[in-house]
């Protein structure tokens, strides 16, 4: 039964998504089983020999009854889904103000192209698109237990940055900078996948998300930054795709 169920959740807030999915499944399966059972029972109980009742059900009572049942089902099944979704969005998934205000937050810019993810870290100066930036390919390193804010775009077609184990996903669209944030609960290596069909090698547009303990992450950051300053080429325009973090104005 290994194929059943959600992939491992390594994020701090993914449980909210899992909870909503599983809660909805409970009501949906219950409603479906009851309805299907009624349908089956109605068909098996009264065969050809039964005299059908002459009833158009075309009354106000009928209308009120149907509407009441439909409304009750809406309240029980859709209600929690709606209310909890709105709460989760306000408290977490759309709450960028919280993520941005955390001093230990990590900011990463990602540029997607067929069929590679390039990631950019601001480096010691805290500014993007400067000589000390760290640029990686198909390899995103983050610390455990800190909000990771990602701004993302694409240079060719639409991709979608998908972190199944973090329960996060956002489209990378040329001409637009999108954003998302999440926080890793566990250390380890996880898949980065592309969720939007982006050409023949879409299935190979794969990266690795490495979650390190904070101290290890800081060490990695320092080493990588020193290396990238040495490799910086001011004339290579292609490599200078970063943007000013503060310039982000969408939403």
């Amino acid at each position: 039964m290994d194929f059943l169920g959600l992939p491992h959740d390594a994020s701090v807030n993914g449980y909210r998504i899992d909870h909503l999915i599983n809660e909805t499944s409970f009501f949906v399966i219950l409603f479906f089983v009851v309805t299907a059972a009624l349908m089956l029972y109605a068909c098996l109980r009264h065969g050809e020999r039964h005299q059908a009742s002459y009833d158009h059900g075309d009354t106000w009572k009928s209308f009120r009854w149907t509407l009441a049942v439909a409304a009750a089902i809406f309240l029980v099944v859709d209600g929690p889904l709606l209310v909890e979704s709105l709460t989760d969005l306000r408290e977490v998934f759309f709450n960028f103000a919280y993520a941005e205000s955390q001093p230990q937050a990590v900011r990463i810019e990602i540029n997607a192209h067929q069929w590679i993810w390039t990631a950019r870290y601001a480096g010691p100066d805290g500014k993007f698109n400067t000589a000390d930036d760290i640029v990686t390919t198909n390899d995103v390193v983050i610390p455990q237990g800190a909000p990771v804010i990602i701004q993302i775009t694409s240079t060719d077609v639409i991709h979608s940055f998908n972190l199944p184990n973090m329960r996060m996903k956002i489209d990378a669209v040329p001409g637009i900078v999108n954003r998302m944030w999440f926080e890793a609960k566990e250390t380890g290596q996880f898949d980065i996948a592309c969720a939007q069909h982006c050409g023949s090698n879409h299935y190979k547009m794969k990266g690795t998300l490495t979650v390190l303990p904070r101290a290890d992450y800081n060490r990695w950051l320092g080493e990588a930054s020193a290396n990238s300053s040495r490799g910086f080429d001011p004339d290579d325009a292609e490599a200078h795709w970063g943007w000013d973090w503060a310039a982000y104005s969408r939403i």
């Binding site: 959600l6 993914g14 909210r16 998504i17 909503l20 999915i21 909805t24 949906v28 409603f31 479906f32 099944v77 859709d78 889904l81 709606l82 909890e84 979704s85 989760d88 969005l89 998934f93 979608s160 998908n162 199944p164 329960r167 996060m168 996903k169 969720a195 939007q196």
Partner: peptide
């Protein structure tokens, strides 16, 4: 019924494009 999951923003973050 499976449309419910996809009509809500939060479950859709995970289920979108799957």
């Amino acid at each position: 019924l499976t449309g419910l999951y996809l009509g809500a923003v939060v479950p859709d973050i995970y289920l979108h494009d799957t």
